[in-house]
């Protein structure tokens, strides 16, 4: 198979694209600092990241939506500190994404087919949503094909597959009991992928998705992962241990009822069903909505959305869990 060669980037060309997108040099460097921080790297790495992003080849990316709610896409498009999506679209070449692409129907399918054929082994495949396997995969069809057959063809020929959100990791919501459609994640729909990075969360935190891609562009390797294929920089620490309310837990200072005095004083939400003790995710430091807030900070318990089978294991969500 003859692959189309990827064109190497150059700093002036990158600068030009940034200018056209209205992203200043200062904003770009701030972004690089943010990425170094998210990856738990010393601040001096910001310069290395900036150089890598300026000169990196632009890897083609195809983004597949299956049994999803598009919240991972929203997470990606809504980021604005700086406009991470604009920056990423300068760094990457997003060849297929149904929610944002111009072509429809057969022409959109052609974009996907062309990328898979011309850049086999060179493109990155992002998967959002679970893949139904029940009844021959009829519960999700795109362009007349099942999600299962698309995933098997596209993921297996990718340089790497990034499963974003809990659904793409292990089935998520659609796979909750009784799993009516036989939904599974990428790891079970296409077993044996050489590189599969799982970025669970409901939805994925765009900082972690971006940092994973930036890590690859900077170091030419994917970040180190745990046994479940989740990058350690994002899923290495328990929320409970990093929680700003942890002292209240240690002192048995618990919220007992919504709006009680303890709730108003920001005490521990464990008795209200918080799953922080059972969840590894970097929410306390990276936060959400451009780093402004996160559930526990806003006074609601953690659902533990980045953990295996959380829809069944962690529900009922307002009943206290196990704190070992």
């Amino acid at each position: 198979m003859t692959n189309t060669r990827l064109v190497e980037g150059s700093a002036p060309a990158f600068e030009g694209r940034l200018t056209r997108q209205g992203v200043s040099r200062r904003e770009f460097l701030k972004f690089c600092g943010l990425m170094a921080g998210t990856l738990a790297l010393p601040a001096r790495y910001a310069g290395r990241i900036a150089y890598a992003l300026e000169t990196a080849v632009r890897p083609p990316v195809v983004w597949l939506n299956f049994q999803d709610c598009t919240a991972d896409t929203e997470s990606f498009l809504r980021a604005s500190q700086p406009d991470v999506d604009d920056l990423l679209l300068d760094i990457l070449s997003l060849n297929y994404h149904e929610t944002v692409m111009v072509p429809s129907g057969r022409m959109s399918v052609k974009s996907l087919e062309d990328t898979v054929r011309d850049y086999a082994g060179q493109y990155v495949c992002v998967v959002e949503g679970s893949i139904p396997t029940g009844d021959g995969g009829v519960y999700c069809g795109i362009g007349g094909r099942t999600a299962l057959s698309i995933a098997q063809e596209v993921c297996s020929q990718a340089l790497a597959t990034l499963a974003v959100g809990t659904c793409a990791w292990e089935g998520g919501l659609a796979a909750a009991v009784p799993n009516p459609t036989g939904a599974v994640g990428v790891k079970d729909a296409v077993p044996g992928l050489a590189t599969l990075i799982n970025l669970p969360g409901c939805p994925v935190n765009v900082a972690n998705l971006t940092a994973t891609i930036v890590h690859f562009l900077t170091f030419q390797q994917w970040p180190e992962t745990d046994g479940a294929g989740r990058p350690l920089f994002a899923y290495g620490e328990e929320i409970h241990e990093e929680c700003p309310r942890h002292d209240h837990y240690e002192h048995d200072e618990f919220v007992q009822e919504w709006g009680d005095a303890a709730h108003r004083q920001g005490w521990c939400l464990f008795q209200m069903g918080c799953r922080g003790p059972d969840t590894k995710h970097n929410c306390p430091s990276v936060k959400w909505n451009d780093g402004t807030e996160w559930p526990i900070g806003a006074g609601h318990g953690c659902l533990g959305c980045s953990e295996q089978r959380f829809w069944d294991r962690h529900s009922p969500f307002y009943v206290p869990g196990d704190d070992d």
Partner: peptide, 12 residues
């Protein structure tokens, strides 16, 4: 005329 997928929407 068949258009599948319809793009720029949420869902399929």
């Amino acid at each position: 005329v068949v258009i599948d997928p319809i793009t720029r929407i949420e869902g399929h």
